[in-house]
Amino acid sequence: MTLRNITRRQLMRHAAASGVLVTMGPQAISQTDRPVRLVLPVAAGSGVDALTRAIGPALSKSLGHPIVVENLPGAGGIIGTLALTKSTPDGRTLSIVSNNHVVFPSVLKSVPFDPLGDITPISIIGTAPMVLVVNSKLPAIDSKQLIALMQAKPGLINYASGGNGTLPHLAAAMFVDEAGVKASHIPYKGVSPMVTDLIGGQVDFGILSLGAIHAQLKSGALRAIGVASAERSAAAPQIPTFKEQGLANFVIDAWFAVIGPKGIPPAEVAHIHSALTETFRSADVIASMAKQGITVALSTPDQAKAYFRSELAKYATLVKKAGVEPQ
């Protein structure tokens, strides 16, 4: 199956496999009462999923409609995003995406949608720190020791990702390139199985947003080597940056954005943006974002569109520098 030949039936099958119900046909309820679908192109347990679940109740209240969150993982995020782009542009189907959305064109040979032309950008939400973690059995407590291990065993130390072409894949490839060492990539079908095998010691290290592995760090199931932000995170101030550890050029943050399918009427875009603004003023949401280390900075729709365009160019350069071959 090629990405360009994904059918409605296949989308439904992926949805069923992820434990969610996707209604593609006529609705039994009125258009007025129809809920807002938040289609996530990721599995449960990711940073995007954690953020979405945290803001769901407040966003539902702000929009004035119930919200149904649908995880549609697969093909590194392509399945869910493709489902979004094929939905009706009435403001009732939205998605929260991350850097993956603009990384796809640089790391995949074929993408079945235009990451700019087939969406309606609504707002960049903000950024979150990326943390390099190792399993508790690996004898490394900082980047110097981890790099020494990779130098001693070229290609034998491996790193996990949530799938080929995802941000964890690119971030780890960038770290390996910056360190001047070799390591093997082990792609998983989502963040949850990736984290499970990291904890179990089946893989050596990986890079994830702080929100996705905060509990595992707190319990000691995973060990943090460093944060890839320019500065330490207020949510985990004990984790040093890679700049502090001698890798000044290894800086990458996760970001999150709300998008819809192409063609949402401007008035509806304005309504959704206003609801987002109200949502992120909620005390509960503010507290949750702080716990996940997310710095909230909502953009306008026009700013979001410009940001997507600039990030497309940025990651094309980073992918080339890190030597990641399109797959």
Rank of each mutant, 00 (worst) to 15 (best):
A215G: 06
V251A: 09
Q292F: 15
V319G: 03
K305Y: 02
A212K: 01
I294D: 01
R223V: 14
G263W: 11
I286E: 13
V285Q: 03
I264S: 08
I225W: 02
A313M: 10
V285M: 06
P301N: 05
G211H: 03
A257F: 09
S288D: 15
V227R: 01
A297T: 09
T277L: 12
I213M: 12
S209M: 09
T279K: 06
H273G: 12
E244P: 04
M289A: 09
S288Y: 00
L312T: 12
G263N: 10
L298C: 08
K305Q: 14
L276Y: 02
F250G: 01
A297Q: 13
I264E: 00
L208V: 08
A297G: 10
A234H: 12
I286L: 11
K262D: 10
Q303C: 05
Q292K: 06
W255L: 05
H273S: 07
A248Q: 14
Y307V: 04
P261K: 07
S282V: 03
F242N: 00
V258F: 10
D253Q: 12
G226P: 00
A236D: 07
T241D: 07
T317Q: 14
M289I: 07
V296L: 09
K291N: 10
A236E: 11
S209E: 14
K291P: 00
S209C: 09
H271L: 13
Q292T: 03
F256D: 01
D302H: 11
Q292E: 10
Q292V: 00
W255K: 02
A228H: 10
A248K: 14
S233F: 05
T277A: 13
P237G: 04
Q238K: 10
V227Q: 08
V227H: 02
I207M: 14
T279R: 07
Y315F: 15
K218F: 07
S219Y: 09
S233G: 09
A235W: 03
I294F: 05
R223M: 10
I294G: 00
H214A: 15
S310L: 05
P301K: 02
A267V: 14
A215S: 15
S288H: 09
R232Q: 14
T241A: 04
K243H: 12
G260N: 01
H271A: 12
A313W: 02
V269G: 05
Q292Y: 15
S288P: 00
T279V: 08
I272F: 08
P240W: 09
I294A: 07
G220I: 11
T241P: 04
V296H: 08
K314I: 01
H271T: 12
E231H: 13
P237H: 08
G220Y: 11
V296N: 08
T277R: 14
E231N: 13
P237D: 13
H271S: 11
A254K: 01
A275K: 04
D253F: 05
E311H: 11
K305W: 05
K218W: 01
P266M: 04
E268Q: 15
P237A: 15
A215L: 09
Q292C: 04
N249R: 15
A306T: 13
S209K: 01
I272A: 03
A221I: 01
V258P: 00
I225S: 05
G263T: 08
L312E: 07
T279Q: 06
K243W: 03
K314Q: 08
R232K: 15
K243C: 06
